[in-house]
């Protein structure tokens, strides 16, 4: 699974297989992090705007 594990070999098979895997995992986690951060940002800016407008 990782380059330091016993079974790992730097061959084309491992590079394709785990390349694909880590690519997919990377996209998913990056996407989720982006979405959560953006939601936090939106919430904060909205609360500031709303509190400003409420008076």
């Amino acid at each position: 699974m990782f380059p330091f594990s016993f079974e790992w070999v730097w061959d084309i098979g491992h590079m394709i297989f785990f390349g694909g895997l880590w690519y997919a995992v990377g996209i998913l986690s990056a996407g989720m992090i982006y979405v959560i951060l953006k939601a936090a940002w939106d919430t904060m800016s909205e609360s500031i705007n709303n509190s400003g407008e409420s008076h």
Binding site: W41, M44, S45, I48, N49, S51, G52, H55
Partner: peptide, 24 residues
């Protein structure tokens, strides 16, 4: 009304980002 809200009201021209930084 909180201190934060006062600040936000007084200084409504600054951007949202600056506001958050200030809030923190």
């Amino acid at each position: 009304m909180s201190e934060l809200e006062n600040k936000a009201k007084n200084d409504s021209t600054i951007s949202a980002g600056e506001k958050i930084a200030q809030k923190i």
